[in-house]
Every structure is written in structure tokens, then in C-alpha cells.
Amino acid sequence: MRYGFILPGTDIWTAPEMAVEAEAAGWDGVFIPDSISIDTAGYPAGPNYDTWIVLALMAMRTERVTLGPMLAAISRRRPWKLARETMTLDHLSHGRFVLPVGLGAATDDAGFYKVGEEMSARGRAQLMDECLDILNGAWSSELFAHDGEQYHVQSMKLLPATIQRPRIPVWVVGAWPRQKSMQRVLNWDGIIPQKMGGGDNPMTPDDIRAIKSYVEANRQHSTPFDIIWEGETPGDDPERAAAMVQPWQDAGITWWMESRWTSNSPQEVLARIKQGPPAAI
């Protein structure tokens, strides 16, 4: 069981320092949003710098923690450029980079609906699947090609290979129990679960157990597989924090992500980081 911290913004000045503090406080990972321009209520206002540049600064300032976006909306990125950026982060971090991916908050992020990006869920899913296929080939350092509906890549090779083998771990948002979404998850290295319907039908530890059983029964790869869940725990009450996490750990999650999406105070975020992860009972 590992503990990550999701920073609520990508401030170029504070994110690297917060990553250093998180490493010192015993967190196992630090993650930042991948948004172009958030345009909705409920999210902290403030500067948003480029995700990949900020992650590079975080990689250079830390030695142990896992780093990544939470999560990357890769349907709006050129796969061959993204391959180069992620490979570089893998090298800068000496193999500590992971790539969580999803369709993106298209209706909330002006980097979708104000600039003419694909808005339909089906279209974004197709772009994401083809992008992942290209990334997998590009990271290998071997010749690869791709001929899809959205992207066409002639036989080419990108060097160097990623440090992590067989590839940079990819965590995919999976809508449980939607078959098509879960089939996609089985091809990669982790799931960020969402429950179909959401709202009045939230995810429960029993759902996590069902997901874990489904993956164990159907996944063909022998590489490690992570189940990621996020929440907010009180840093000033370790016993209560541990009790909140325990049911999810018992159900089978491998990462607890401490999230502070609605906090607009860097001081509050830093204070929670310094209090350390909610170690399970």
C-alpha cells in the first residue's frame, strides 16, 4: 500500500518545494493536475503552468517519490510529442514517472471546448486508445508503426528507450462495470476506478473487491497492476485518518491518493503534506 498526494494546482514555484516536503514527510508519490484552463466553480483559482515542465522540476528536486499527472487528458496531445516528453520525465526521475490517463473534463476545461478539441466521449476514447498504442511502441526503442482512424505513423524508432521496462506504467480511468472500459484497463498497468451512474451511486469498498477479482480473472499480463483511490483525511487525527483508509486497503487498493481539490490555500496544502500519510491501522 502506497500513499500519494495530489497537489491542487501546477504552480511552478510551489509544486517542486511541496514535492520535496512530501518526500521528507513519508509520502510515496506526488501528482499534479493536467489542465489547460479550468473554467468551472469549485476549483481553486490561481496560476496553472505547463504540467510537463513542472513535473520536470519536481523530478530534479526529489529522489524517491513517484511522480505523474493526475490525470493526463491525452486525446488532445500529439502522441509522438507526448512520447518524447514522458520518456524524458522517466529519465529525469530515474524511473519514477507514471502516466495516469483519462478522457479529461471536457466541459470544465477551456482547453477543450474553447479551442476546438474533440468533445464527444466516443471520439476522445478513440483518440486516447490510439495514442496509448503509439506511446507503447515509441517507448520500446524498437521500430513501430500505427495505422488507425485518427493517427497514421509510418515505421519509425524513437531513442532512447524508457528506463522502466517494459514501459512507463499507465493507469487508466475505468468505468465500472462497463465492459468496454474495463477491457481497456486490462491492457495496461492500473485502474483509476469510476462507478457508472456516480452521484447517488458512489463507489464502495465492495466495488473495489469486485474490480480486483475481475482484473485477476481476466488480465493476461504478468506485470504489476495498481488500483488507485482518492479521498481526504484529517492530518490532525491519525487514528481517524487510518480508519478512513482501512476499508479501501482491505478491499484491494494499492494507492491511496490524498486530494485537496477545493483547497485554495498553499499553506493549508503544505500543512497537510507535512502531517504525513494516513498510515493504515
Rank of each mutant, 00 (worst) to 15 (best):
Pro166Gln: 04
Leu103Val: 03
Gly104Met: 09
Ile191Cys: 14
Trp188Gly: 06
Gly199Cys: 00
Ala161Lys: 15
Gly199Pro: 00
Glu85Asn: 04
Val101Phe: 06
Asp200Thr: 05
Gly68His: 01
His146Cys: 13
His91Cys: 01
Gly198Gln: 08
Tyr151Trp: 15
Asn187Tyr: 04
Arg77Trp: 13
Ile168Val: 15
Thr86Leu: 03
Gly190Arg: 10
Trp188Ala: 09
Pro160Asp: 06
Ser120His: 05
Met182Lys: 10
Thr107Pro: 00
Asp200Gly: 14
Glu142Ser: 12
Arg167Trp: 03
Phe97Cys: 09
Pro69Ile: 06
Gly95Thr: 03
Trp80Arg: 13
Ala125Leu: 10
Pro202Val: 02
Lys81Arg: 15
Asp133Gly: 12
His152Tyr: 04
Arg78Gly: 11
Met87Asn: 15
Pro177Gln: 02
Gly116Pro: 02
Leu92Phe: 15
Leu99Arg: 04
Met70Asn: 14
His146Ala: 14
Phe112Lys: 02
Gly190Lys: 04
Pro202His: 09
Glu142Arg: 15
Ile168Glu: 07
Thr162Tyr: 05
Thr162Trp: 05
Ile192Trp: 07
Asp147Lys: 15
Trp176Pro: 05
Val172Ala: 14
Leu143Trp: 13
Gly95Pro: 02
Tyr151Glu: 02
Val101Trp: 05
Ile192Cys: 05
Pro100Gln: 08
Leu186Trp: 09
Lys157Tyr: 00
Phe97Thr: 06
Gly197Cys: 08
Val115Trp: 06
Leu135Glu: 07
Val153Ala: 14
Arg167Met: 10
Leu186His: 02
Ser155Leu: 06
Pro177Asp: 04
Ala72Lys: 03
Val98Met: 14
Arg84Trp: 11
Ala73Asp: 14
Met156Asn: 09
Gly190Cys: 12
Asn187Phe: 00
Gln150Ile: 10
Arg76Asn: 13
Gln164Cys: 12
Leu127Ala: 14
Arg76Phe: 10
Ala83Leu: 08
Pro79Asn: 08
Arg122Trp: 10
Arg84Pro: 02
Ser141Asp: 15
Met70Glu: 10
Gln183Lys: 15
Gly197Asn: 05
Ser155Pro: 03
Asn201Glu: 12
Ser181Lys: 07
Phe112Val: 04
Gly174Val: 07
Met203Val: 15
Leu132Thr: 00
Glu117Gln: 15
Asn136Ile: 03
